[in-house]
Computed example of a mutant assay.
Amino acid sequence: MLLTTTGARSGRAHTAVLGYYPDGDRVLVVGSAGGGPKHPDWYHNLVANPEVTVETGLFTYQATAVVLRDAERDDIFARLVEAEPGWGEYQARITRTIPVVALVQPPGPPGGGRGPVSELLKRIHTAFRRELALIRREVATSGASLGARLRVNCLTLCQGLHNHHTGESVGLFPALAAQHPELADVIAVLQAEHDQIAVRLEELQGVLADPSPDLLPEVDQLIDALTAHLEREEAELLPYL
Rank of each mutant, 00 (worst) to 15 (best):
E72P: 06
L132N: 14
L176P: 01
T141C: 01
G108V: 00
R93H: 14
A148N: 02
G86V: 08
R149E: 08
A127G: 04
A148I: 01
A102L: 02
H162M: 11
V152I: 10
P109H: 09
I94C: 02
L172H: 12
G86D: 11
Q91V: 04
R151W: 05
R96W: 05
A144P: 10
S118V: 11
D70R: 13
I124F: 12
D70W: 10
L161C: 05
G115V: 07
R73H: 15
R149P: 00
C154A: 07
P116V: 09
H164E: 06
P85Y: 02
Y90T: 05
R130I: 09
R129I: 09
Y90I: 05
R96A: 08
G108K: 02
A71C: 06
I94P: 01
G108Q: 02
R93C: 05
G160C: 10
C154M: 06
T166N: 09
G112M: 09
E168R: 07
F173R: 03
G115C: 03
L146M: 11
G143N: 07
E138P: 00
R129F: 08
A83P: 09
F77P: 03
A133H: 14
A148C: 02
L155Y: 09
P99S: 10
T141H: 07
S118A: 15
L103W: 04
V101Y: 00
T156V: 12
D75Y: 04
L150A: 03
L134T: 15
F128S: 03
L155M: 14
N153P: 00
I94Q: 08
L150V: 06
R73N: 07
W87M: 03
L161V: 12
E84S: 08
C158H: 12
P106M: 08
K122W: 01
R137F: 06
G113H: 09
R73S: 09
D74N: 14
R129H: 13
A175G: 05
G112K: 11
V81E: 10
S118D: 12
L132V: 04
V170D: 04
S145A: 13
E119A: 14
R123Y: 06
H125C: 01
G160D: 14
G115F: 01
R136D: 13
A83K: 15
T97M: 04
L176R: 00
R129Q: 14
R96C: 06
G111S: 06
L146N: 09
D70A: 13
E131H: 12
G112F: 08
C158V: 15
L155D: 09
L176D: 02
G167F: 07
P99R: 10
G143K: 05
L134F: 13
A83N: 14
G112L: 12
P99C: 11
C158I: 15
S145C: 05
G108H: 01
E168C: 03
A78H: 01
L103H: 06
H162C: 06
I135E: 11
P116N: 10
D70C: 11
V117C: 05
T166A: 10
R149C: 00
P85E: 03
L150T: 12
H165R: 13
S142I: 00
L161F: 03
G111H: 07
A102P: 04
R149D: 08
G108C: 01
E131K: 14
R69L: 12
T156F: 05
R130Q: 14
A148D: 07
G111P: 05
L103D: 03
R129N: 12
D75I: 00
A71F: 07
E131C: 05
R151C: 11
H165E: 15
